[in-house]
């Protein structure tokens, strides 16, 4: 029992650090505080104490189940109608974004910034979990890929208010009618 507890202690310490950082990030109103706080807290405890913790697959699966279920529960019947309506522009936008990701990956490899495979996986705009999982499954250095996606995550989060501001300006300048009350946000 004691031995099991000693084995679990590093994992519990990282979990505690993750939760504490998430709560601090929440208090500081940092966007997407559960992921960003959880990530920074876990990294700080893991690296700070040299723990080299490995999170059991079951815990990762449970986390994905909770997040996925929460998203799925918000899907109303009209979502399926919206899916058909937005399939064409969505495919176009996705094609351009994935194409740009491949292009950037190729450019990073050509400039010698990263290994070609790691460059592709690092610059492809997927989620942290998705791309790192794919990279590790392919046998590449997950640490490099996660580093790039961490930078991506913070770049996207920090630039989001600016992009929202630009979108509102575009709407006001070119789309909204004179008596339009404006967007909700």
């Amino acid at each position: 029992m004691t031995q099991l507890l000693l084995q679990l202690l590093p994992l519990l310490a990282v979990m505690a650090g993750s939760a504490a950082a998430a709560l601090i990030f929440r208090r500081c109103r940092i966007p997407l505080w559960p992921i960003t706080g959880g990530l920074v807290g876990a990294a700080a405890i893991n690296l700070g104490f040299g723990l080299a913790v490995q999170v059991p697959d079951l815990i990762v699966l449970l986390a994905q189940l909770l997040v996925g279920t929460a998203i799925g529960a918000t899907i109303a019947p009209d979502t399926f109608r919206q899916f058909r309506r937005f399939l064409a522009p969505g495919t176009l936008a996705v094609g351009a974004v994935l194409g740009a990701g491949l292009l950037f990956g190729w450019a990073f490899a050509a400039l010698g910034i990263l290994d070609p495979a790691e460059a592709m996986l690092s610059l492809m705009p997927g989620g942290v979990g998705e791309m790192v999982t794919a990279g590790v499954a392919l046998g590449f250095d997950g640490a490099v890929i996660i580093g790039a996606h961490m930078v991506r995550l913070f770049t996207v989060l920090l630039s989001l208010p600016l992009v929202l501001w630009a979108a509102v300006k575009i709407r006001q300048r070119w789309i909204a009618e004179p008596d339009d009350p404006g967007p909700r946000s």
Binding site: I35, A43, L47, V53, V60, L62, V67, M150
Partner: peptide, 21 residues
Amino acid sequence: LRQIGLTTVGLAAGVLLTLDS
């Protein structure tokens, strides 16, 4: 529950970071 899930997703990513990375 969603927040616990997201924090754990962050945790699973955070432990992959090394000094080299």
